[in-house]
Computed example of a mutant assay.
Amino acid sequence: MSVKYHGLSEEYDDKRIKELRKYGILDTLPEQAYDDMTRLAAIICNAPIAIISLVDKDRQWFKSIKGLDAEETHRQHSFCSHAIVTPDQPFIVEDSRLDDRFKDNPLVTGAPNIVFYAGIPLKSENGYGLGSFCIIDTVPRHLSDEQIEALQILARQVMLLLEMRKKTAELDIKTEMLGMKLKKFDETVAQKVTEAMNKKK
């Protein structure tokens, strides 16, 4: 079984991406509820950059980003693509310049000069890592247990927003399908009534 990204098999990653796209969140406009989360994370951790990142097939796309002017980056260079490999635990790099996985990464050697990264995977109800709720700094850092716990709480709130979005979309589809069935039923009943009335004439 071929490995696609950082230990994820191609088969698993395809299922993960299919799960991500069920949420209908990619390429949507900014929303205050998500922006509030990244702003709060930046305050709690005293970090210049906070991001809600979703890892698509070949990119990481940012639903919310504080401290950077970007919408997405290539997945190949994404720290978050490492975080989703272990969706049940935080992924923390205290100094990327000393880490063989990242020291030559263009996001480390050039702008935005990532040195510290802490990401909490955004895990779906089915256990897939969809992306990461993360903070970034340009200097080495160490988070307290309380700060990590706060990031985990915020990540769970982000997933609640995403799950509500998905369920609302599913409900809309079911409602639309029901409406189409009712319309067809009404048309069938009307046709039968018309036929019955014509037979009586």
Rank of each mutant, 00 (worst) to 15 (best):
P87T: 08
E31A: 10
Q157F: 11
C80S: 10
P48W: 06
L26H: 09
L178S: 07
P30Y: 13
D14M: 08
D99F: 06
G129D: 07
V108I: 07
G179K: 12
D36A: 13
D36P: 03
D99V: 08
S78W: 02
P106L: 04
S2R: 04
D36T: 12
K183V: 00
L40Y: 00
K192I: 05
D56S: 05
T86S: 14
L151D: 01
D172R: 10
G127I: 04
W61A: 04
L182D: 12
N126G: 11
R75E: 02
T175R: 10
Q147H: 11
C134V: 07
L68G: 03
G119F: 06
R165K: 15
L98H: 08
S64C: 09
A83E: 08
G119I: 10
K57Y: 12
C45I: 11
F116A: 01
D100G: 07
P112I: 06
A70C: 11
C45G: 07
D99Q: 06
T188E: 14
F185T: 08
Q89G: 13
E170C: 08
Q152A: 13
K123Y: 11
I17D: 03
L130D: 11
D56C: 02
I65A: 14
S96M: 07
P90C: 07
A33K: 13
V55L: 09
T175P: 00
A118M: 01
K57G: 00
L182W: 12
I92D: 03
K167Y: 12
A196N: 15
R39G: 14
E187P: 01
P106R: 05
E187C: 00
P106H: 10
N105Y: 03
P90Q: 06
D35M: 11
K184P: 00
W61L: 11
P30E: 13
A41G: 07
G110E: 15
D100K: 14
A169T: 14
M37F: 09
D88K: 12
G131Y: 08
L40W: 01
S9L: 12
Y23I: 05
I173H: 08
V93G: 01
L68E: 09
Q89M: 14
T28K: 09
F79R: 01
F116Y: 09
A33W: 03
K199P: 00
S9I: 13
L160F: 14
F102P: 05
T86Y: 06
G7Q: 07
K15N: 15
Q76V: 13
R141L: 02
T38W: 03
H74F: 14
K201N: 14
G24F: 03
Q147Y: 10
K181R: 14
K22P: 01
R165Y: 09
R21G: 02
E176F: 08
L40G: 00
S81F: 00
K63D: 02
I17L: 09
L161M: 09
